[in-house]
Amino acid sequence: MPEKRTDERWTAPDGSPLDEEDRGLVYDIRTLIDRRRVLGLFGGIATATLLAACSSPADPRSSASVTSTTPDAARTPTTRATGGAGVVEVPDETAGPFPGDGSNGIDVLDDSGIVRSDIRSSFGSSTTTAEGVPLTIRLGVRDAATGAALVGAAVYLWHCDRSGEYSLYGQSVQNENYLRGVQPVDASGNVTFRSIFPACYSGRWPHIHFEVYSDVATAVASGPIVKTSQIALPQETCDSVYATAGYEQSVSNLSRTSLSSDMVFRDDSGIHQLATMTGSAASGYTAALTVGV
C-alpha cells in the first residue's frame, strides 16, 4: 500500500518522514507491478467490450470514487480508423504518487478546464504559467493488435515542472494545476499538447506520464483507465535543455541515472517509450511517440 499522508507529509513504514524524491521512489516501486497487471492486450473484438474488460477491479480507484453511472458496455463505442499492421503495446507503468486522477486523493480530472491542449498555465483560481523550454508532445494512439487509430479515445497527460515539482502536490505548487490536461484522439489518431520540457529530479530519468481512457467523458469522470504508461526523453535533448537557465539542478540529477538503470524504463531501456525529438533548445522541441494500447 502507498504511504499515508499526514499534514501533507509522507512517511516510510517505520514512521520516519520521506523527502520529495524518496516518497516518489517508494510509491513507484510499490505500485509498479500492480499497474503492470491492470490491463491485457486488445483483441479483435468491439472496442466498447474491450474497454469494459480492461476496467477490472485492479483499477486503482474504488467504484465509490468513479462518478460516471453509465456501464462501460453501454457507452458509445470508440470509432476506429482503418489501420494496417499491429504496433508494439506500450508497457504498463506506475502513475507514480502525483497523478491527480483521484487515485491518490487529489482529482483534477473533474475540474472545468482540464480538457485542453495548452497545459503550460494553471486554470481556475490561478493563471500561473510554468516556465521552461517549450515542448510540444504528440502521441499517436493505436490498437496494438491491428494498428488502427483509436479515434475518440482520450489521453490525460501530466509531468513535473522545471524545478522537478508536480502541481497540486509540490510544496511550492500545491495551488497550481499546470502541466496537466486531457485531449481526445483526433481523426488522424493523434493527441497534441503544448507544454514545457520537464526537469530531471533525483532518482528518475526525465519522463512524462499519461493515461488512456475510452473517451473524454470517461476521463473527466475519473472512470476506468485503459492504459497507464510513461514517455522517456532522449539524453541528447535533455543535455541541450538542461544547459539552459533554470534547469541547473537537472544537470547533476541526470548524471546520476540512466535509461538502463531507471526503475521504470530499465526493462527494455525505454525502447518502446523513447520519444523521437525534433527542434532545438532555442526554438523549442517536439516529442513524438506512437503508443499501442
Rank of each mutant, 00 (worst) to 15 (best):
A287H: 08
E8P: 00
G270I: 11
D111V: 01
L254R: 09
A149L: 06
G147P: 09
A282K: 12
P60L: 12
I106D: 00
R194Q: 14
R9M: 11
G203A: 11
A130G: 04
G84V: 06
F98C: 07
A52F: 01
D118S: 06
G284D: 13
R120F: 00
H272R: 15
Y169M: 02
G147M: 13
D22T: 09
I231N: 02
T128F: 08
Q171W: 02
T70W: 03
P206K: 10
L289K: 04
F265S: 10
S250V: 07
A148R: 14
M277S: 06
S255H: 08
G270T: 12
L254T: 05
S167T: 09
T290K: 03
R256Q: 15
V108A: 08
P97I: 10
F265D: 12
V151W: 01
A275Y: 05
C54T: 03
S195M: 05
P134Q: 10
N190H: 12
I114K: 00
L259F: 09
V293F: 13
L157F: 04
I106E: 01
Q174N: 04
R5A: 07
V108N: 11
Y201K: 10
S122K: 05
T136V: 15
S117D: 06
L135D: 08
Y242C: 05
V226M: 08
S260K: 14
E8K: 10
Y156L: 05
F210E: 02
P224A: 15
D111S: 10
P184I: 01
V173D: 00
T67D: 11
S240K: 14
W158A: 01
N253F: 09
E236Q: 14
R266H: 15
S283T: 15
E3G: 08
V151P: 02
L233H: 08
A288K: 14
A12R: 14
M277P: 04
S163P: 00
G189T: 03
A281F: 12
A12Q: 06
G223F: 06
G15I: 13
G86P: 04
V155A: 05
G96N: 03
Y156T: 07
W205A: 08
G152Q: 01
L274C: 09
D239M: 14
I106G: 00
T70L: 15
R142S: 04
H207F: 01
S68R: 09
D110N: 15
S122V: 05
G246D: 15
S269T: 14
T6Q: 13
A46Q: 12
F193Y: 12
S16L: 12
F197N: 02
A288C: 07
L157G: 00
R75M: 12
P97D: 06
G43L: 12
L51G: 03
R120V: 09
W10F: 14
N104P: 00
G40A: 12
R75W: 01
V191L: 03
Y156V: 06
V226R: 05
A243M: 09
C54G: 07
T278A: 15
C200K: 02
G24S: 07
A53R: 08
H209S: 07
P13V: 14
S255K: 11
V90F: 00
V133Q: 10
I225H: 01
Y285Q: 10
P77T: 02
R116D: 07
K227M: 10
L32N: 13
S65W: 03
P134T: 10
G83E: 04
P97C: 03
W10I: 02
Y169K: 05
E176L: 07
A144H: 03
G292R: 06
